[in-house]
């Protein structure tokens, strides 16, 4: 652990094989992210964890830490770019926070608050996306999907089921389930699956929970995401 790099001027120790975001996390430093999860192989797709490494833009979840790196993260320029990424995520889906049961527990919402996103800025796409309520215990509301692929990785790598996948390309990419009918009820998804636990937004929801947790007791009511993130 004698090797270090600097993150916003602070010396951060790291072990061989650690990525920048892993080392930062171990040192108690938060780098904004959505598709990264410490339990899964990094995907590097949301780009929210982008930092500059020796002046170059790099995804901190896929970039190995190296001795002597000069890493910048919490700068106005980078946070401005992150706000733009968040704004694009908000307008590409249908995110109605006022009536979403994930409000207060949603990482997209919490990160937007943390980074001071005040408006969506861009025109909304208002895509037509379905709700899949076929499963007796789980609801899928695709309106809120940000294509982070955490459910895909959890199902494949932890549950060993491949219930979820990303289908299509580019702006046409969408989350699908592994059933000819396209219905979650026709997959082997089951309560207890890791894939049903990891959604950072309000796509994969346990039915009939709704608003059982009162305002004031939700995850990000108590502290901002920068102080609560894993």
């Amino acid at each position: 652990m004698s090797q270090t790099f600097t993150l916003d001027g602070e010396e951060i120790p790291f072990r061989d094989g650690q990525t920048i975001i892993q080392a930062a996390h171990d040192a108690g430093r938060w780098i904004p992210h959505l598709c990264y999860h410490p339990e899964f192989k990094p995907h590097g797709s949301c780009k929210l964890c982008t930092v500059t490494v020796n002046g170059r833009h790099m995804a901190s979840c896929t970039t190995q830490a190296a001795a002597g790196q000069t890493v910048e993260s919490d700068t106005e320029a980078l946070n401005g770019e992150r706000r733009t990424l968040l704004q694009m995520l908000f307008v590409e889906g249908n995110h109605f926070c006022p009536s979403c049961e994930k409000s207060g527990d949603c990482k997209l919402q919490a990160t937007a608050y943390e980074l001071g996103m005040m408006t969506p800025h861009f025109d909304h796409f208002y895509p037509s996306r379905p709700v899949d309520a076929s499963h007796p215990e789980v609801l899928l509301d695709f309106n809120r999907c940000i294509l982070c692929s955490l459910c895909v990785r959890a199902s494949r790598d932890v549950d060993g089921k491949c219930v979820f996948a990303l289908s299509g390309r580019g702006i046409g990419t969408k989350l699908v389930v592994n059933a000819a009918s396209g219905r979650l009820a026709d997959t082997d998804a089951a309560i207890g699956d890791k894939a049903l636990e990891v959604c950072p937004v309000g796509v994969i929801l346990k039915k009939r929970r709704g608003f059982a947790v009162p305002i004031g007791e939700r995850t990000y009511d108590k502290a901002p995401i920068s102080e609560t993130e894993e």
Binding site: F96, C100, E101, K207, R209, G210
Partner: peptide, 9 residues
């Protein structure tokens, strides 16, 4: 929409 969302929406 799911019924449990309705009172809030």
């Amino acid at each position: 929409r799911p019924y449990w969302e309705v009172p809030v929406m």
